[in-house]
């Protein structure tokens, strides 16, 4: 089986700090890959390299077998690499629904020429996007928040909105940066269920997470990173059983 996403000898350093040291990573279709490691291990930097926020010093990234190294951040999103952010980066002056409507991969209403000359097509796309946004919100039980300002919601719901917004991009790759940080209760259950559903629908999912039980429940495979290096790649049970890694990570 060819990996949906593959990195090849990905290297990146900032001065003396190596954030990515020959990282070779694959994520398969329908898989939820856990990415764990101590703070500063280079997990988020790896997401930044894959999504195009950062440019690697060397190495390549392949999406469905094709190199995407030349593609800018926004183009990679259009190719279907969707990601969330540790601090969510929601559009703060907008409603929940508006946040989601910014996220589909193509959107004719955001071309000034189409707005001027193809109003019917824009209206149609708008209606379609609204339907999808409401369906996505309904999956999380948040449809009643659609017209609320996103900053007025409790933190856990904001995290879910961050995920919902990313899900409007229906591409093959989903990168989740600490989706569970600060999330508890009902939102926790919802997050877990939706991530699992996305993988079952065939997406390649990668999760950076410190919540080990979340990783254990969801991931069949996990990768342990430290100092920009992948130290171990295996089942979650294997990683947890490895005393050397536990020491590095938990300091015990």
């Amino acid at each position: 089986m060819t990996a949906v996403l593959r990195t090849e000898d990905l290297c990146k350093r900032f001065g003396g700090i190596v954030v990515s040291d020959s990282v070779n990573l694959t994520i398969d279709r329908g898989e939820i890959l856990g990415l764990i490691g101590p703070n500063g291990a280079g997990k988020t930097s790896l997401f930044n390299l894959i999504s195009g926020v950062l440019r690697p010093d060397s190495g390549s990234i392949y999406l469905n077998g094709e190199a995407i190294d030349a593609a800018a951040l926004y183009r990679r999103a259009r190719l279907g690499i969707a990601r969330t952010w540790q601090n969510m980066l929601l559009f703060r002056t907008m409603t929940v629904l508006e946040n989601l409507l910014i996220a589909p991969r193509s959107y004719p209403g955001e071309s000034i020429l189409r707005v001027a000359f193809a109003r019917a097509a824009v209206r149609e796309a708008e209606r379609h996007a609204r339907d999808r946004a409401m369906t996505t919100l309904a999956r999380m039980g948040l449809e009643q928040t659609a017209s609320e300002m996103v900053v007025d919601l409790p933190f856990g719901q904001q995290k879910l909105i961050g995920l919902a917004r990313t899900l409007m991009n229906d591409g093959p790759v989903l990168l989740l940066d600490e989706p569970m940080a600060g999330v508890e209760g009902a939102a926790y259950e919802t997050m877990q269920r939706v991530v699992r559903e996305e993988a079952e629908a065939g997406r390649a999912v990668c999760v950076v997470e410190h919540n080990v039980s979340f990783i254990r429940d969801l991931c069949s495979r996990a990768v342990f990173m430290a100092n920009g290096k992948i130290l171990q790649d295996g089942t979650v049970a294997e990683l947890i059983a490895s005393s050397a890694l536990t020491e590095l990570y938990f300091g015990v």
Partner: peptide, 8 residues
């Protein structure tokens, strides 16, 4: 940043 990473 989020706007760009959503394909815009």
């Amino acid at each position: 940043l989020a706007f760009t990473a959503l394909g815009r």
